[in-house]
Design a protein around this nucleic acid. Structure first.
Lengths: 239, 239
DNA sequence: CTTTATCACTTGTATATACAGGATGTCAAT
DNA sequence: ATTGACATCCTGTATATACAAGTGATAAAG
């Protein structure tokens, strides 16, 4: 508990927002006071507050202080890299994951392009379905480069791949690019999903990178439109 | 050109990424070297690099340097608060905006909830349609609190409301919360849009805040599914 | 030839100081 | 009672220094 002081302060303050110790609209203690309370410098406090600001917890008001924003409406976590398992923990209702396909393949041209790799590269292919309250509404197609994930089992895929990668393999997932579109159902969608009359699905294409900026995963998450919801917090930098 | 040194450096470096002076995969000069080149301190450079990192331009590698990411694939600007006009500037094809309705109203209960205001508050109601290549594919319903925007004309709405707010009124738009869902077409959608057989629309609900954390605008942007695309860059903080 | 140690260079974190500039209240002068 | 000057809070920016820790190349040791 000695390293990363500012992240530690960030999480402690974030918890106070989530638990309601700090109420929306309220001003949190000033940077000087927090610096004294945590026995650290003002700059360190400022790093923690900057993080809170970027993640939509507070708004800093010059000359006044930092006001707590209302995060209840948006149902955190907002945007970001939220895996299905993390998301599921926050939702009510019965959720079930089924691994429909699990194999090691050579990428066809489309995948080569998405993963920016050659045909020689081996790729884990994982197809999973997500069931809410008895209805199968999400089809997740994951492709992971074996180069970075040497071992993978069907069992792990039934749990959380991210947890395995970060905790077992010690890799750090750093950032991702997402693209959201709406596309006609494919034959595959019809087979795996309870399309329930919908002719289209929401497709979330996700390109996930490790902390050395190497692309290691491409995910195509196909949602039945009525069960899809995406929330985002965006700050307008500069200008 | 004397204030906000680190934002200035950020923009200058961002331009070099966009123009290709810095190529993806390449390492940019070290923090020390940049500090010397810009005749400033390392901390100031670090603030600029932090901004670049958050916006997906670079990845910082400890012990190595900062590598330029490939921003071409994602077609910037990513996520963020991109107004229609900013977005249109980057797209090809003929784009046309039509102001279908412009009035000053008292909010009904649904709007009171969205804008978190009382029925006494006056609200500008602006309905605009967006036409691409002769097809009307976006319906924008804007509601702005008169409290913050005392004056507004139909003419301004035909241009850019954001530009008017920031440049003419001197207000600063600070952050926004977005929610993306897919919903059945309303009668209004059918009237205004060329639905082209689609039974659903993509609805982007946007809550926009000023820099004093006051909510001043609620926007409902309704897109025909085949013309909708949302791109996002997300960094996985902490852990 | 392989392994190890070292060194130079990189970014990450923590601290300190200084001044600019907005917000707010007090108090005196008008 | 209103105004205005001032003091005193707050956050924003810029600078400086120090040390920790990862990377990669080179030199030394086995």
């Amino acid at each position: 508990m000695k390293k990363n002081k500012y992240k530690h302060i960030y999480e402690e303050l974030a918890d106070k927002m989530k638990s309601g110790t700090f109420q929306p609209g309220e001003l949190i203690p000033s940077e000087h006071e927090l610096a004294a309370r945590y026995e650290t410098s003002r700059e360190t406090i400022r790093k923690a507050l900057t993080l809170l600001s970027q993640n939509g917890y507070i708004q800093k008001l010059r000359g006044k202080g930092s006001v707590v924003l209302d995060t209840s409406r948006a149902s955190f976590p907002i945007s970001g890299l939220v895996s299905f398992k993390e998301l599921a923990d926050q939702m009510n209702g019965v959720i079930q994951t089924n691994v429909a396909e699990f194999s090691l393949i050579r990428p066809e041209p489309y995948l080569q392009h998405q993963l920016q790799c050659s045909v020689k590269e081996e790729v884990w292919k994982v197809i999973r379905t997500r069931t809410f309250d008895g209805e199968c509404v999400i089809l997740d197609k994951d492709f992971l480069l074996k180069k970075y994930i040497p071992e993978l089992t069907k069992d792990i895929c039934g749990q959380s791949i991210y947890a395995y990668i970060e905790q077992e393999l010690g890799l750090t997932i750093s950032f991702a690019k997402k693209e959201i579109t709406v596309e006609p159902c494919t034959d595959e969608d019809v087979v795996f999903l309870d399309t329930n009359g919908f002719s289209h699905v929401v497709v979330v294409r996700n390109y996930v990178y490790l902390d050395d900026a190497s692309l290691f995963q491409y995910t195509e998450s196909r949602h039945r439109p009525d069960k899809f919801r995406f929330v985002d917090f965006a700050r307008r930098h500069m200008k």
